[in-house]
Amino acid sequence: MINRYHPLKTCYSENPVMVIDTNASHSDLLDAADQRLRAASDLLETLYCLCFKQADVKDIPNIVNALYLLVQDGCDLLEVAKQRPAQPAYS
């Protein structure tokens, strides 16, 4: 039996406050994953287009942390969505 609330891997405490509701609809889980993965992709695209000579070295850990949170949360959401069958479409 799957627990209703699945903690995100990005939670650092023993009592997670950020969780995924495994009872959420399949499409809602996929939408949330898509939102986070697209945000990470957009950030990476922006960074790719910037000149790093203008960047401050102290910003790199902040950028990496933001990307890690977005990608890991998106992957966690996809994992939960894969465990839930998609609802059949009705015509």
Rank of each mutant, 00 (worst) to 15 (best):
P7L: 06
L70S: 00
N23P: 07
A39T: 02
L78T: 05
K58P: 05
I60H: 09
K53L: 15
D28P: 00
H26V: 02
D21I: 01
I63A: 09
Y5F: 11
V57H: 07
T22Y: 00
A33K: 01
C51P: 10
A66P: 04
C11W: 10
L8G: 01
E79I: 05
D28R: 03
P61Y: 07
L43P: 04
E14A: 15
L69F: 09
C51A: 14
V17Y: 15
S41E: 01
L77C: 11
I2E: 11
A32N: 08
L8Y: 12
N15Y: 14
A40I: 04
R4F: 01
M18I: 14
R4A: 04
V19T: 12
A66I: 10
A39L: 13
V17Q: 15
P61C: 09
V19S: 09
T22F: 02
I63V: 11
A81K: 03
I63D: 11
L70E: 02
T10I: 12
R38S: 04
N15F: 12
A55H: 12
S41I: 00
S27G: 07
L8K: 00
Y48A: 04
I60Y: 06
I63E: 08
D56T: 09
I63C: 08
Y5T: 06
M18Q: 00
P16H: 09
L47K: 06
L43G: 08
A66K: 01
L70F: 05
L78I: 01
H6N: 08
S13E: 09
M18V: 11
S27W: 12
A55V: 15
I60W: 11
D76T: 11
I20K: 02
D59S: 10
F52L: 10
Y12V: 12
E79F: 06
V71Y: 05
Q83A: 11
L77W: 04
L47A: 10
A55E: 12
A39I: 14
L69E: 10
M18K: 11
C49T: 14
D21L: 08
K58G: 07
Y5C: 08
N62S: 13
A39H: 01
